[in-house]
């Protein structure tokens, strides 16, 4: 297992392909149409929340960060990220909640709540069209390696790892689904099956469930580490938030 992950980490990978390229024509058309894409509803809600005061400080996000299209541009391409001064690895959801708690004096937002999905979608949307560009450095290498180990670890009653579907069988069918390379560059996405927007962690938990493995909690360190590893695999793909999936 260990040798497999070490080898795979070094082997050059072909250009990554976004999940949308494996999707059907109807889904692609829906994602491409800003008026039809249901995910844009969450982006619009996020825009409202951006300037709504919250918490004891009575400050809004805009109170500190001003104009999101300028100040949040490119931010999603660099996440998950660790503060220079240390602290835990944060994905966008984690950073938004950190700002709420520490700067706004507000409650943290629950994972998959409408508000957290909306704010995450709104912030990530400001990077739409820009390439994923996480940096692996001394500060986050341990997270990267943990994420990589999860990716190559067989687990669950089905005894499958991420690699078995998303690396070895991308483009093939699992029942009615075309398996993609498993990138996170379009999240949060609007998923037709959920009839809602959902986070990357919700999608990842579905994959754990599918192989009948224990599901790590959304927002857990294990999933944020995996998210960092996925982002490193997705380097160069454009951020597509809000994506659409079947």
């Amino acid at each position: 297992m260990l040798t497999l992950s070490a080898v795979a980490a070094e082997a050059p990978r072909p250009q990554p392909k976004s999940g949308i390229e494996y999707a059907g024509g109807d889904v692609r058309a829906l994602q491409a149409d800003d008026f039809g894409n249901p995910g844009m509803l969450w982006v619009a809600r996020g825009e409202k929340l951006w300037s709504a005061p919250a918490g004891r400080s009575g400050k809004s996000c805009a109170g500190c960060h001003r104009d999101a299209p300028t100040t949040m541009k490119g931010v999603a391409t660099r996440y998950p990220r660790r503060d220079v001064g240390g602290g835990e690895l944060l994905n966008l959801e984690g950073r938004i909640n950190q700002c709420r708690e520490q700067r706004q004096g507000a409650d943290v937002l629950r994972y998959e709540s409408e508000e957290l999905l909306a704010l995450t979608a709104y912030v990530a949307h400001q990077s739409r069209g820009m390439p994923v560009n996480v940096e692996i450095n001394d500060a986050n290498r341990v997270n990267f390696e943990r994420g990589r180990d999860t990716y190559y670890r067989r687990q669950g009653q089905m005894n499958l790892a991420c690699t078995h579907c998303h690396e070895q069988n991308a483009g093939r069918k699992l029942l009615a689904d075309t398996i993609s390379e498993g990138h996170g560059n379009a999240y949060p996405v609007y998923r037709l099956e959920w009839q809602s927007a959902g986070s990357l962690h919700r999608r990842l938990r579905a994959c754990f469930f599918g192989v009948r493995a224990e599901q790590p909690a959304a927002g857990s360190a294990e999933l944020v580490d995996l998210e960092l590893y996925l982002a490193s695999r997705a380097r160069g793909l454009q951020v597509e938030t809000p994506g659409v999936r079947r």
Binding site: R154, Q155, G156, Q157, N159, F209, R212, A213, E214, Q215
Partner: peptide
Amino acid sequence: LVRVAPAW
């Protein structure tokens, strides 16, 4: 097997 969900 590793980390099998409790139900299984």
